[in-house]
Amino acid sequence: MELTITKNATCTFCGCVCDDIELHSDGERITHTKAACVLGASWFKNHTAEHLYPDALIDGKPATVDEAIELAADILYDADMPLIYGLSNITCEAQRESVGLAEMVGGIIDSHTSL
């Protein structure tokens, strides 16, 4: 197993978004963190590159991503007032896509800020 070191990695666990973390990984999981706090270290170590979950689920049954995307598009298109919610643990690029999607389907978009 080859050890890769990622320097100045950014932690997105809390709002501090520390960007001085060093991560050691073996390609599948992060084995060691430097400079991260207890919350950050557990965040990095608890997410692996393993295929632990099915790619997609439809009504609780495993499905392909293509089928799931097709059905998701149908649901959002057919809805009169779709709600898009969350946006906290995704990138700004994905947030931009979500706002575009909300406009396209004429829905409501909201984040954790409203809680």
């Binding site: 998701a72 057919d78 709600l83 898009i84 969350g86 946006l87």
Partner: peptide
């Protein structure tokens, strides 16, 4: 609302 898309959250 009559549909929902949840991302990066666990309501």
């Amino acid at each position: 609302c009559d549909a929902a898309l949840i991302l990066g959250a666990d309501p």
